[in-house]
């Protein structure tokens, strides 16, 4: 699973700032973990301004995804293994 574009994802926010994505996760996800830039999600290093928050609702992961020309998207993907790994390796928020 090397490419986020190939995943089945839902776009939660589009054209938001990185800060707005972080605030959305903290306000709307049941739990969140804090990770460093470069932490891999679906095998891809995450881009962002520390502290980077990743939201978890059961097996659902909510995370920022940044592209140079399109800014930051907040994406939501269901994946139990990846959610468990993030829960285990991230720092509790």
């Amino acid at each position: 699973m090397g490419c986020i574009e190939s995943l089945s994802y839902e776009v939660v926010l589009q054209g938001a700032s990185f800060k707005e994505c972080r605030e959305y996760i903290r306000a709307n996800c049941r739990e969140y973990r804090i990770v460093e830039p470069g932490f891999k999600i679906f095998e891809k290093p995450i881009i962002g301004i520390p502290p980077i928050s990743i939201g978890l609702d059961g097996d659902t992961i909510t995370f920022p995804f940044t592209k140079p020309c399109y800014g930051t998207f907040l994406l939501r993907v269901d994946d139990s293994e990846e959610a468990e790994r993030i829960r285990r390796e991230g720092k509790p928020g």
């Binding site: 830039p37 470069g38 962002g48 940044t66 140079p68 800014g71 930051t72």
Partner: peptide
Amino acid sequence: NDAGVSYAAT
């Protein structure tokens, strides 16, 4: 833009 700041922070 904001994305550039995110890349630089990373």
